[in-house]
Computed example of a mutant assay.
Amino acid sequence: MDVVKDMRLPGLHFHDLRHTGNIRAAMSGAGLKDLMARTGHDNARAAMIYQRAIRGAGKLITEAIDKHFMGPWRTACTYMTHHPGVETPHPRAVRDHEGWTAPLREQEDLGMGTSIHGFVECRTWTRGLDIGDSAWCAAISLSMLGVHRDYGAFDCLFGVRSSGNWRPIAADRGLPQGASETAKAELAQWGEAAFGATWLSWEEVAAIDWDEPALHPTNLAQYRQLPDQTLELVHRSVWSRRFARVSGVDTLTVDPGQVALWDEGTEWKAGNTVFRVERATRRQVVPPEGYWHAVWTVMRTLAQVHGDDAVRLVAWFEE
């Protein structure tokens, strides 16, 4: 092309621009799922090329962490310098229209972190088997169902990134007997990066007590007391300067994890505002209409066809 000649780069091809763009996307912190969408690949292997290309880029990683965690804090400090009297947030807090809050479930959107991979499997007849025989087959991948990173669920269901607040349902069981060839091959591609391989049957999912509370207090909820004395939830989890003024707890220096040391039901009141120490339930951490809704729906549907004992989730994690 004339442009290439003018640039004195005779070895440059148009595809090199695509490759460079995808490398830059990976360097910006894009996750595997985002890279797959950007590149148009329908499997992880090709997109992983770009992630592997930037492994070891410690400086970029450090800058990304700093920007993610300290950026809001610096913005808040700048704002408060020019607006005296504004409530001071905890560095781990986020701001919405109600003020600064510490979310019950911390979702990280950086390319770094812990992600889940795997498949919903069902046991059925497939090509190559004798009539009447069956084998475990990969029905659909978790990435296809939109599940990528959900630390609350990882902790509650699988004991990964454990907070010590939950009795996990299926922690580190390894691959199940007769795992599908698709699942085994995909896991092998991750090599040493993969950990925590496990499985969870539909029978177990159906038997989960979603109203079971955490083993310890997990969050400080904020309520508004209405004229009829009932309480209206404002924030499921909060760690604000307003709470600091009411309780005497310095929310700038005391970590929200302090909640675990208080008795469940402990309350602080100021006017019509009530702060209460609570234990989250599995339902709140893994809401029925949340990330896992599609997974449970697929498993339930397959169980109706193949039987409750013939459907399971096979998964592993990587960081």
Rank of each mutant, 00 (worst) to 15 (best):
G271T: 09
K59L: 13
E181C: 10
H117G: 02
D209H: 14
V286N: 08
V4L: 15
G132K: 10
K269M: 14
R45N: 03
R24D: 12
R276L: 07
A64P: 02
T124R: 01
G58P: 12
Y50V: 08
P91H: 06
T266R: 15
R24H: 13
G11Q: 15
A193C: 10
C122R: 07
L17N: 00
T182E: 04
G271K: 11
A260M: 13
A179C: 15
G11T: 14
A194K: 00
A44H: 03
G164F: 11
M80S: 14
W239D: 01
W100V: 00
Q229V: 04
R24C: 10
G21Q: 07
R224H: 07
W268A: 01
P176E: 14
A46K: 12
S115M: 03
A221R: 11
R279F: 06
H293N: 02
I116N: 11
D228K: 12
W73G: 06
L233N: 08
V274K: 03
W125Y: 12
V3F: 15
D150S: 14
L104H: 08
D2Y: 09
W202T: 04
G307I: 02
P103W: 05
V311T: 02
V298D: 10
I65S: 09
N43T: 15
R24M: 14
S247E: 04
G159D: 05
Y291F: 14
L215W: 04
P256V: 09
A185I: 07
L9S: 05
R242E: 07
L129D: 02
W136E: 08
P287D: 01
D172M: 09
P72R: 02
A185S: 09
S28F: 06
T75Q: 14
T301R: 13
W296S: 08
S162T: 10
H15N: 05
L60D: 04
M112G: 05
E203K: 13
P91V: 07
V285D: 02
R24Q: 14
M70D: 12
S180W: 03
Y50I: 08
A221T: 15
H90R: 10
N43L: 11
R52P: 07
F69Q: 03
R45V: 08
E204G: 13
A207H: 02
A37F: 13
T78H: 15
L104W: 07
G307V: 04
R8L: 02
T273H: 01
D228E: 15
H117P: 00
D42W: 06
R92W: 13
V120L: 10
L35Y: 03
L129T: 04
V285G: 00
H15A: 07
F317S: 03
D155R: 12
A170T: 06
D255V: 01
R123A: 00
S163N: 11
R161Q: 13
E106Y: 06
S134F: 04
V120I: 15
T78N: 15
H68Y: 00
R123G: 01
L12S: 07
R242P: 02
K184C: 13
D96C: 03
H15Y: 08
F119N: 00
L35P: 00
G164C: 10
S247L: 10
V205R: 09
T182H: 00
R127E: 09
F275K: 03
A315F: 01
A102K: 01
D16P: 04
V298M: 14
V259T: 03
G56K: 13
H90F: 08
G152P: 02
G164K: 09
E232F: 05
